[in-house]
Amino acid sequence: MNRFSYHRAETLADAISHLRSNPAAAIIAGGTNLVDLMKYEVERPGELVDLTRLDELRGISETPDGGMRIGALVPNSDVAYDERIAKLYPLLTHAVLAGATPQLRNAATTGGNLNQRTRCYYFNDVATPCNKREPGSGCGAIGGVNRIHAILGASDQCIATHPSDMCVALSALDATVEVAGPDGERRISFREYHRLPGDEPQRDNTLRQGEIVVAVTLAGEASYFAENYTYLKLRDRLSYAFALVSVAAALQLDGGRIAAARLALGGVSHMPWRKPDAENALVGMAAGEETFTRAADILLAGAQPHEHNAFKVDLARRAIVRALTQAAAATPQSLSDKRIA
């Protein structure tokens, strides 16, 4: 861990100006990811700008359209145990609780969850090549140990995945990210927030220099998915492991027919993976395995596995079908009983 200066931001404007004036500055809030990366020498910020005193980034509130707004500093555990969220957006509750551990969720923030870095082995080890950590150094995972890596939307520069569970649900729920920066505030649709690696794998998201995540908002109409949903996470042990494949599935049913559908995957790409075509293929159809399989095939079209992760393609297909089955039956995956319904 390098030496760094520390600045406790007193106002949002103060934080933004520090970030803008010092390209070597990094934001710290919960620190559950950044501090680890600093210990590994993966991140070597010259300055830490601490946001934790900014009250305007706290709190979960209701919005005029019947939705919810979650401040960037709200801990994951507060999101998980907020009764309003559990009622309107139980998919989010489930996704949050599927991740990490109680201790980590107590410390980790909403903004931090969006901005956490990949858990790629090579990104985390400065003795190895990684285009995300050190652009131009190569991708160690391609041709290396890549069982946990991406099968969708990767590039020849980077096959890292985004590790979040929460973000998979936020993507499925079409959340909006509120950011504030030197040029004022703007709102980014969740699907536009993260990005694919392309030839700039060092960029995880579309934030501009000096911008800070202020809040995440969920639209009132996204609560129509509160009946038929599930978050199904498959991993190498029954708790406390990143997803090999995870599925956020949410349906609106009209009798036996699907009126609206949302489907997002985690653990398979540089960002939560969604395709409107896959969701459209569900709409108007009777809920059933054949329909679900077709949607899965569309969502997974173009998958490009590597040496060790080919299993993810078929696993994802099965997981999507199972998740949609759970959602349609209104039997979301239990978080305490690890048996998969």
Partner: peptide, 12 residues
């Protein structure tokens, strides 16, 4: 898990 090209343990 070892990356045999690098001769290095990766999941440390």
């Amino acid at each position: 898990l070892t990356d045999h090209r690098l001769g290095r343990i990766m999941n440390h």
